[in-house]
Design a protein around this nucleic acid. Structure first.
Ligand SMILES: [Mn+2]
Ligand SMILES: [Mn+2]
Ligand SMILES: [Zn+2]
Ligand SMILES: [Zn+2]
Lengths: 143, 143
DNA sequence: AATGCAATTGCAAATCGTTTGCAATAACTG
DNA sequence: CAGTTATTGCAAACGATTTGCAATTGCATT
Protein backbone atom coordinates (compact mmCIF):
# COMPACT_ATOMS: atom_id res chain seq x y z
CA UNK A 1 0.00 0.00 0.00
CA UNK A 2 3.01 2.27 -0.29
CA UNK A 3 5.49 3.24 -2.98
CA UNK A 4 7.07 -0.19 -2.58
CA UNK A 5 3.92 -1.71 -3.93
CA UNK A 6 4.08 0.38 -7.05
CA UNK A 7 7.61 -0.76 -7.89
CA UNK A 8 6.75 -4.38 -7.36
CA UNK A 9 3.67 -4.09 -9.52
CA UNK A 10 5.78 -2.59 -12.26
CA UNK A 11 8.21 -5.46 -12.21
CA UNK A 12 5.42 -7.98 -12.07
CA UNK A 13 3.70 -6.53 -15.10
CA UNK A 14 7.01 -6.65 -16.95
CA UNK A 15 7.15 -10.38 -16.27
CA UNK A 16 3.49 -10.91 -16.99
CA UNK A 17 3.73 -9.05 -20.28
CA UNK A 18 6.58 -11.38 -21.21
CA UNK A 19 4.29 -14.32 -20.51
CA UNK A 20 6.06 -15.35 -17.33
CA UNK A 21 4.47 -16.57 -14.14
CA UNK A 22 4.58 -14.64 -10.89
CA UNK A 23 6.06 -17.10 -8.42
CA UNK A 24 7.01 -16.69 -4.80
CA UNK A 25 10.79 -16.67 -5.39
CA UNK A 26 10.42 -14.16 -8.19
CA UNK A 27 8.26 -11.91 -6.02
CA UNK A 28 10.91 -11.95 -3.32
CA UNK A 29 13.74 -11.21 -5.73
CA UNK A 30 11.78 -8.44 -7.39
CA UNK A 31 11.06 -6.90 -4.00
CA UNK A 32 14.78 -6.76 -3.28
CA UNK A 33 15.66 -5.29 -6.64
CA UNK A 34 12.98 -2.67 -6.32
CA UNK A 35 14.24 -1.35 -3.03
CA UNK A 36 17.96 -1.76 -3.73
CA UNK A 37 20.01 1.40 -4.09
CA UNK A 38 23.24 -0.42 -4.88
CA UNK A 39 24.69 -2.85 -7.42
CA UNK A 40 24.43 -6.29 -5.80
CA UNK A 41 25.79 -9.42 -7.43
CA UNK A 42 23.84 -12.69 -7.74
CA UNK A 43 25.18 -14.08 -4.49
CA UNK A 44 24.24 -10.95 -2.57
CA UNK A 45 20.75 -10.99 -4.06
CA UNK A 46 20.54 -14.63 -3.10
CA UNK A 47 21.49 -13.80 0.49
CA UNK A 48 18.94 -11.04 0.78
CA UNK A 49 16.21 -13.09 -0.87
CA UNK A 50 17.03 -16.11 1.23
CA UNK A 51 16.63 -14.09 4.41
CA UNK A 52 12.99 -13.47 3.49
CA UNK A 53 12.15 -16.77 1.89
CA UNK A 54 14.51 -19.61 2.83
CA UNK A 55 13.41 -21.66 -0.14
CA UNK A 56 14.90 -19.37 -2.80
CA UNK A 57 17.90 -20.97 -4.48
CA UNK A 58 20.90 -19.43 -6.18
CA UNK A 59 19.92 -21.05 -9.46
CA UNK A 60 16.60 -19.30 -9.36
CA UNK A 61 18.31 -16.00 -8.68
CA UNK A 62 20.46 -16.50 -11.77
CA UNK A 63 17.49 -17.62 -13.83
CA UNK A 64 15.40 -14.67 -12.68
CA UNK A 65 18.18 -12.20 -13.40
CA UNK A 66 18.51 -13.61 -16.87
CA UNK A 67 14.77 -13.38 -17.44
CA UNK A 68 14.63 -9.81 -16.19
CA UNK A 69 17.60 -8.90 -18.33
CA UNK A 70 15.99 -10.39 -21.40
CA UNK A 71 12.88 -8.36 -20.59
CA UNK A 72 15.06 -5.28 -20.36
CA UNK A 73 13.98 -4.72 -16.76
CA UNK A 74 17.50 -4.74 -15.34
CA UNK A 75 21.06 -3.93 -16.38
CA UNK A 76 23.90 -6.36 -15.90
CA UNK A 77 27.35 -4.89 -15.29
CA UNK A 78 30.55 -6.92 -15.55
CA UNK A 79 32.98 -4.65 -13.78
CA UNK A 80 36.66 -5.51 -13.83
CA UNK A 81 37.44 -8.53 -11.74
CA UNK A 82 34.33 -9.48 -9.78
CA UNK A 83 31.07 -11.23 -10.68
CA UNK A 84 28.23 -9.56 -12.58
CA UNK A 85 26.30 -6.87 -10.72
CA UNK A 86 22.75 -5.81 -11.31
CA UNK A 87 20.57 -2.75 -11.05
CA UNK A 88 17.12 -1.69 -12.09
CA UNK A 89 16.75 -0.39 -15.61
CA UNK A 90 14.10 2.16 -14.73
CA UNK A 91 16.54 4.88 -13.62
CA UNK A 92 17.88 7.30 -16.24
CA UNK A 93 21.03 6.15 -18.02
CA UNK A 94 24.33 6.69 -16.28
CA UNK A 95 27.87 5.33 -16.27
CA UNK A 96 30.11 4.28 -13.40
CA UNK A 97 33.30 5.27 -11.65
CA UNK A 98 34.79 2.48 -9.55
CA UNK A 99 37.15 3.20 -6.67
CA UNK A 100 40.02 0.77 -7.22
CA UNK A 101 40.89 0.80 -3.51
CA UNK A 102 37.48 0.41 -1.90
CA UNK A 103 35.37 -1.00 -4.73
CA UNK A 104 32.89 1.80 -4.12
CA UNK A 105 30.77 2.63 -7.15
CA UNK A 106 29.83 6.20 -8.04
CA UNK A 107 27.29 6.92 -10.74
CA UNK A 108 27.60 9.80 -13.14
CA UNK A 109 26.19 11.03 -16.39
CA UNK A 110 27.75 13.23 -19.01
CA UNK A 111 25.49 14.49 -21.74
CA UNK A 112 28.56 15.57 -23.66
CA UNK A 113 30.16 12.16 -23.61
CA UNK A 114 26.93 10.47 -24.59
CA UNK A 115 26.68 12.83 -27.55
CA UNK A 116 30.30 12.33 -28.57
CA UNK A 117 29.88 8.58 -28.52
CA UNK A 118 27.00 8.83 -30.97
CA UNK A 119 29.06 11.11 -33.15
CA UNK A 120 32.02 8.72 -33.19
CA UNK A 121 29.81 5.76 -33.98
CA UNK A 122 28.26 7.64 -36.87
CA UNK A 123 31.67 8.53 -38.25
CA UNK A 124 32.64 4.88 -38.13
CA UNK A 125 29.45 3.95 -39.96
CA UNK A 126 27.69 2.40 -36.98
CA UNK A 127 24.83 3.16 -34.66
CA UNK A 128 25.22 2.31 -30.99
CA UNK A 129 23.15 -0.54 -29.55
CA UNK A 130 24.57 -0.08 -26.07
CA UNK A 131 27.82 0.99 -24.52
CA UNK A 132 29.99 0.61 -21.49
CA UNK A 133 31.94 3.43 -19.89
CA UNK A 134 33.73 2.65 -16.68
CA UNK A 135 36.25 4.88 -14.96
CA UNK A 136 38.52 3.10 -12.50
CA UNK A 137 40.02 5.66 -10.16
CA UNK A 138 41.47 6.55 -6.83
CA UNK A 139 40.40 9.26 -4.43
CA UNK A 140 42.30 12.46 -5.12
CA UNK A 141 44.72 13.33 -2.32
CA UNK A 142 45.89 16.70 -3.58
CA UNK A 143 42.87 18.90 -3.64
CA UNK B 1 67.27 -8.46 -39.05
CA UNK B 2 64.09 -6.57 -39.87
CA UNK B 3 61.55 -4.47 -38.00
CA UNK B 4 60.19 -7.69 -36.53
CA UNK B 5 63.42 -8.12 -34.68
CA UNK B 6 63.13 -4.73 -33.10
CA UNK B 7 59.68 -5.47 -31.67
CA UNK B 8 60.81 -8.77 -30.27
CA UNK B 9 63.85 -7.21 -28.66
CA UNK B 10 61.60 -4.65 -27.03
CA UNK B 11 59.41 -7.28 -25.51
CA UNK B 12 62.37 -9.28 -24.39
CA UNK B 13 63.95 -6.36 -22.62
CA UNK B 14 60.65 -5.69 -20.89
CA UNK B 15 60.76 -9.22 -19.54
CA UNK B 16 64.45 -9.07 -18.73
CA UNK B 17 64.03 -5.79 -16.89
CA UNK B 18 61.35 -7.45 -14.83
CA UNK B 19 63.83 -10.18 -13.92
CA UNK B 20 62.18 -12.84 -16.06
CA UNK B 21 63.93 -15.42 -18.19
CA UNK B 22 63.71 -15.49 -21.95
CA UNK B 23 62.43 -18.95 -22.72
CA UNK B 24 61.50 -20.59 -25.98
CA UNK B 25 57.72 -20.55 -25.37
CA UNK B 26 57.89 -16.91 -24.35
CA UNK B 27 59.86 -15.99 -27.42
CA UNK B 28 57.26 -17.64 -29.61
CA UNK B 29 54.36 -15.96 -27.87
CA UNK B 30 56.08 -12.58 -27.98
CA UNK B 31 56.74 -13.01 -31.68
CA UNK B 32 53.06 -13.55 -32.27
CA UNK B 33 52.01 -10.59 -30.15
CA UNK B 34 54.51 -8.34 -31.87
CA UNK B 35 53.20 -9.06 -35.34
CA UNK B 36 49.52 -9.32 -34.43
CA UNK B 37 47.24 -6.60 -35.75
CA UNK B 38 44.15 -7.94 -34.04
CA UNK B 39 42.86 -8.75 -30.54
CA UNK B 40 43.38 -12.50 -30.10
CA UNK B 41 42.22 -14.38 -27.02
CA UNK B 42 44.38 -16.85 -25.09
CA UNK B 43 43.19 -19.85 -27.10
CA UNK B 44 43.93 -18.13 -30.40
CA UNK B 45 47.40 -17.14 -29.21
CA UNK B 46 47.88 -20.73 -28.11
CA UNK B 47 46.91 -21.99 -31.58
CA UNK B 48 49.27 -19.61 -33.34
CA UNK B 49 52.12 -20.30 -30.95
CA UNK B 50 51.54 -24.01 -31.10
CA UNK B 51 51.82 -23.95 -34.89
CA UNK B 52 55.40 -22.70 -34.53
CA UNK B 53 56.45 -24.60 -31.46
CA UNK B 54 54.33 -27.64 -30.71
CA UNK B 55 55.52 -27.74 -27.13
CA UNK B 56 53.85 -24.49 -26.04
CA UNK B 57 50.95 -25.18 -23.68
CA UNK B 58 47.82 -23.18 -22.97
CA UNK B 59 48.90 -22.76 -19.35
CA UNK B 60 52.08 -21.09 -20.47
CA UNK B 61 50.12 -18.78 -22.72
CA UNK B 62 47.98 -17.72 -19.77
CA UNK B 63 50.99 -17.36 -17.53
CA UNK B 64 52.89 -15.34 -20.09
CA UNK B 65 49.93 -13.07 -20.71
CA UNK B 66 49.67 -12.45 -17.01
CA UNK B 67 53.38 -11.69 -16.74
CA UNK B 68 53.27 -9.31 -19.69
CA UNK B 69 50.20 -7.63 -18.27
CA UNK B 70 51.87 -7.16 -14.91
CA UNK B 71 54.84 -5.64 -16.74
CA UNK B 72 52.45 -3.30 -18.51
CA UNK B 73 53.53 -4.67 -21.89
CA UNK B 74 50.04 -5.68 -22.98
CA UNK B 75 46.43 -4.69 -22.44
CA UNK B 76 43.77 -7.20 -21.51
CA UNK B 77 40.22 -6.51 -22.71
CA UNK B 78 37.18 -8.30 -21.36
CA UNK B 79 34.61 -7.50 -24.00
CA UNK B 80 31.01 -8.47 -23.42
CA UNK B 81 30.48 -12.18 -23.54
CA UNK B 82 33.66 -13.80 -24.76
CA UNK B 83 37.04 -14.57 -23.17
CA UNK B 84 39.72 -11.94 -22.52
CA UNK B 85 41.48 -10.52 -25.56
CA UNK B 86 44.95 -9.07 -25.73
CA UNK B 87 46.91 -6.48 -27.61
CA UNK B 88 50.27 -4.77 -27.37
CA UNK B 89 50.48 -1.80 -25.07
CA UNK B 90 52.95 0.08 -27.23
CA UNK B 91 50.36 1.62 -29.53
CA UNK B 92 48.81 4.95 -28.54
CA UNK B 93 45.70 4.70 -26.34
CA UNK B 94 42.42 4.02 -28.06
CA UNK B 95 38.99 2.61 -27.27
CA UNK B 96 36.88 0.05 -29.10
CA UNK B 97 33.66 -0.26 -31.04
CA UNK B 98 32.39 -3.83 -31.31
CA UNK B 99 30.06 -4.90 -34.10
CA UNK B 100 27.35 -6.87 -32.29
CA UNK B 101 26.54 -8.84 -35.44
CA UNK B 102 29.99 -9.82 -36.67
CA UNK B 103 32.15 -9.37 -33.59
CA UNK B 104 34.44 -7.14 -35.61
CA UNK B 105 36.43 -4.68 -33.54
CA UNK B 106 37.11 -1.13 -34.67
CA UNK B 107 39.55 1.08 -32.82
CA UNK B 108 39.00 4.78 -32.30
CA UNK B 109 40.27 7.61 -30.21
CA UNK B 110 38.52 10.75 -29.09
CA UNK B 111 40.63 13.41 -27.49
CA UNK B 112 37.46 15.13 -26.36
CA UNK B 113 36.09 12.09 -24.57
CA UNK B 114 39.42 11.42 -22.91
CA UNK B 115 39.45 14.98 -21.64
CA UNK B 116 35.85 14.86 -20.45
CA UNK B 117 36.55 11.69 -18.52
CA UNK B 118 39.34 13.39 -16.62
CA UNK B 119 37.08 16.31 -15.95
CA UNK B 120 34.30 14.12 -14.59
CA UNK B 121 36.69 12.19 -12.39
CA UNK B 122 38.05 15.39 -10.94
CA UNK B 123 34.55 16.66 -10.19
CA UNK B 124 33.84 13.42 -8.35
CA UNK B 125 37.04 13.82 -6.35
CA UNK B 126 38.97 11.05 -8.12
CA UNK B 127 41.81 10.67 -10.54
CA UNK B 128 41.55 7.98 -13.21
CA UNK B 129 43.84 4.98 -12.96
CA UNK B 130 42.44 3.43 -16.14
CA UNK B 131 39.16 3.30 -17.97
CA UNK B 132 37.10 1.22 -20.28
CA UNK B 133 34.99 2.62 -23.09
CA UNK B 134 33.31 0.15 -25.39
CA UNK B 135 30.67 0.96 -27.97
CA UNK B 136 28.58 -1.99 -29.07
CA UNK B 137 26.96 -1.17 -32.36
CA UNK B 138 25.52 -2.27 -35.64
CA UNK B 139 26.46 -1.16 -39.14
CA UNK B 140 24.33 1.78 -40.18
CA UNK B 141 21.91 0.90 -42.98
CA UNK B 142 20.60 4.38 -43.71
CA UNK B 143 23.56 6.33 -44.88
C1' DA C 1 -12.88 -25.75 -5.43
C1' DA C 2 -10.94 -29.73 -8.11
C1' DT C 3 -8.33 -30.82 -12.66
C1' DG C 4 -4.65 -30.79 -15.99
C1' DC C 5 -0.73 -29.21 -18.09
C1' DA C 6 3.03 -26.34 -18.91
C1' DA C 7 6.20 -23.31 -16.48
C1' DT C 8 9.20 -23.12 -12.66
C1' DT C 9 11.78 -24.93 -8.98
C1' DG C 10 15.87 -26.96 -6.15
C1' DC C 11 19.50 -29.81 -6.51
C1' DA C 12 23.52 -31.68 -8.38
C1' DA C 13 26.30 -32.08 -12.09
C1' DA C 14 28.21 -29.71 -16.10
C1' DT C 15 30.28 -25.84 -18.32
C1' DC C 16 33.60 -22.06 -19.50
C1' DG C 17 37.65 -19.47 -18.95
C1' DT C 18 41.32 -19.24 -16.11
C1' DT C 19 44.54 -20.47 -12.30
C1' DT C 20 47.40 -23.53 -9.62
C1' DG C 21 50.24 -27.61 -7.42
C1' DC C 22 53.68 -30.47 -8.65
C1' DA C 23 57.50 -32.99 -10.35
C1' DA C 24 60.31 -32.64 -14.49
C1' DT C 25 63.02 -29.45 -17.33
C1' DA C 26 65.45 -25.61 -19.05
C1' DA C 27 67.82 -20.67 -18.12
C1' DC C 28 70.98 -18.28 -16.14
C1' DT C 29 75.06 -17.66 -12.95
C1' DG C 30 79.73 -18.36 -11.96
C1' DC D 1 80.14 -27.55 -17.14
C1' DA D 2 77.58 -27.63 -12.50
C1' DG D 3 74.32 -25.64 -9.30
C1' DT D 4 70.59 -22.99 -8.31
C1' DT D 5 66.14 -21.42 -9.48
C1' DA D 6 62.65 -19.99 -12.70
C1' DT D 7 59.71 -22.04 -15.91
C1' DT D 8 57.27 -25.68 -17.97
C1' DG D 9 53.41 -29.21 -19.15
C1' DC D 10 50.03 -31.70 -17.23
C1' DA D 11 46.07 -32.52 -14.64
C1' DA D 12 43.33 -31.14 -11.22
C1' DA D 13 41.07 -27.06 -8.91
C1' DC D 14 38.82 -22.89 -9.45
C1' DG D 15 34.75 -19.23 -9.43
C1' DA D 16 30.91 -17.78 -11.80
C1' DT D 17 27.25 -19.23 -14.26
C1' DT D 18 24.30 -22.59 -16.72
C1' DT D 19 21.82 -26.82 -17.32
C1' DG D 20 19.26 -31.65 -16.99
C1' DC D 21 16.01 -33.63 -14.43
C1' DA D 22 12.31 -35.12 -11.58
C1' DA D 23 9.32 -32.91 -8.28
C1' DT D 24 6.45 -28.86 -7.48
C1' DT D 25 3.80 -24.92 -8.55
C1' DG D 26 1.00 -21.34 -10.97
C1' DC D 27 -2.74 -20.65 -13.48
C1' DA D 28 -6.29 -21.37 -17.02
C1' DT D 29 -10.32 -24.62 -17.16
C1' DT D 30 -13.95 -26.83 -15.74
MN1 LIG E 1 24.30 2.22 -11.65
MN1 LIG F 1 42.83 -2.18 -29.61
ZN1 LIG G 1 26.74 6.27 -20.90
ZN1 LIG H 1 39.94 5.94 -23.85
Amino acid sequence: MSEQDTSDRDYESVLRDAGMRITKPRKTILEILAEGEDHPDALEIFRRANARDASVSLSTVYRTMKALHDCGAIHRHAFEGGPARFEQADAPHHDHMIDVDTGEIVEFRSEKIERLQEEIARELGYHIVYHRLELYGRKRKTR
